[in-house]
């Protein structure tokens, strides 16, 4: 039945016999099985677990309904973590995408190709490093007794924080933000630069003929032309901000006294230090809500709309 209806719809395709279907399913099977075992099944379990109260080794699971969520929304550490995720998000969007955009424009129009390749190699390099290595490196930079930051501040006779950069509850999260920007701005620049290089040169020539300054070209030609790339970069940065974990873990472990906690580290601590699996699952559900919403928007933009068979669904 199925074969017949498909044949009548698209006569171009070779009649897809049953054996071809079986071959297709067989090729899809490994991906689907792995997806089911390691993504779909655990994910549904996270949602279910968020309604229970239990520990890693406790023999019983007590159903508590939405109690975990109610407790979470009254938990000051949850709100501090959430605020910190938002600080990283806003700071990253403004700096990584904003400064990345300026850098990309300079690379695209301002400097010679040879220099731009060399400079790109340098600014992109931290992207291939592990965040753990970057974190340890910057812990040295922030170190109060031998760190470069204190030395630089002393050199220009500015005060340094009494408790150390990472030990000061008001500064710690901003230090983490700084490191994240150091690591990822080059990445954003490369994405944006790729978008700019696809802009037809005639647009620039026309603007220059009309007497536009470089700044005007940037705001009235470049930015509108790569609008979608900018939106994609903002979304990638936002998603990444909710996934923050490695840098926080290595630099401050969420301290001092939860001051630099993020949702990821708070989830980890509840599950694997405080033995509160249900509560941790509730945090995971909240995190999931944010990242899934943002990722689906990104996928919708990204999944080449004219060709995707899923264009009407995703």
């Amino acid at each position: 039945m199925n074969n017949m209806s498909q044949n009548t719809i698209s006569s171009k395709h070779r009649s897809p016999g049953r054996s071809v279907h079986i071959a297709s399913y067989a090729m899809l099977a490994p991906a689907l099985v792995l997806f089911a075992i390691f993504i779909a099944y655990p994910l549904s379990n996270t949602v279910i677990s968020s309604l229970f109260e239990y520990g890693l080794t406790s023999p019983t699971r007590n159903f508590v309904g939405l109690q975990n969520f109610l407790e979470l929304f009254g938990d000051p550490v949850f709100w501090v973590s959430f605020r910190n995720n938002l600080i990283i998000l806003l700071g990253s969007v403004v700096f990584q995408v904003g400064f990345g955009l300026v850098l990309a424009a300079v690379f695209n129009r301002g400097i010679s190709r040879r220099w731009s390749t060399l400079a790109r190699t340098i600014v992109f390099a931290p992207m291939v490093m592990s965040s753990v290595a970057v974190g340890i490196l910057w812990q040295l930079v922030f170190n109060p007794s031998i760190g470069a930051l204190d030395a630089a501040m002393n050199f220009v006779r500015l005060p340094t924080p009494m408790l150390g950069w990472l030990g000061d509850p008001n500064l710690a999260i901003f230090c983490i933000l700084l490191v994240a920007c150091w690591q990822y701005t080059g990445f954003m620049m490369v994405i944006l630069l790729a978008g700019m290089q696809a802009v037809p040169n005639e647009l620039y020539e026309a603007a220059t003929l009309d007497g536009a300054t470089e700044a005007q070209v940037f705001f009235y030609v470049t930015i509108p032309a790569i609008r979608n790339v900018i939106i994609a970069s903002v979304l990638i940065t936002m998603i990444g901000s909710f996934k923050a974990f490695d840098l926080v873990y290595v630099l401050t472990l969420g301290g001092p006294a939860h001051a630099s906690e993020v949702l990821g580290t708070y989830l980890y601590k509840n599950a694997f230090n405080l033995n509160r699996m249900g509560y941790a699952s509730a945090i995971a559900v909240v995190l999931l809500g944010f990242t899934v919403t943002l990722s689906l928007i990104q996928l919708r933009l990204q999944a080449t709309p004219t060709r995707s068979p899923a264009k009407d669904v995703v």
Binding site: L28, Y41, N45, T46, L267, L299, S308
Partner: peptide
């Protein structure tokens, strides 16, 4: 199947750590 597989991209590892 395409939509199912692609949607997996939206799910961060963080959210399935416990299970």
């Amino acid at each position: 199947f395409y939509v199912l597989l692609i949607t997996g991209y939206a799910i961060p590892i963080h959210t399935v750590l416990v299970p």
